[in-house]
Amino acid sequence: MHELSLVVNLLELCEAEASRGGFDRIDRIVLEVGELSGVSLPALRFSFDVAGRGSVIESAVLEIRETPGTGWCLKCEETVRIREPLRECPVCGSLGLLPTGGTEFRLCELVVRDRRTLEKSRKGVG
């Protein structure tokens, strides 16, 4: 259940952003989660609901962009599509794949609500 620790880390990032950016409400949190990241999405969503209560992320919608797992096959010498568990190359069937993509676990963007933006946009238009 490391997802709870991950959400605590995410919450700290969001709180730091809120403090810097002067907002107190986040409407949407966009995460990139790789297929080989070792993160369980149901556990992540569950932890998000529990750990987020009473915080800046409480009312946020969690949007997850999944990225596919890829690996380098030592035999084919090519990048191939892989999923866990890492058993064999889907092309040549050999063992021996090094993961090259899909291990990300990243906070991409926050959609936040505040008043400052309107002031800025007014200035921009005017």
Partner: peptide, 27 residues
Amino acid sequence: SGPGASLPLPEGPEVNRTIRIGQDILE
């Protein structure tokens, strides 16, 4: 987003804005 204290919010209706972050959560 530079370091520093939060700014007081001017009056006005609330609007949404998007902040791009791109940071590893385990960073």
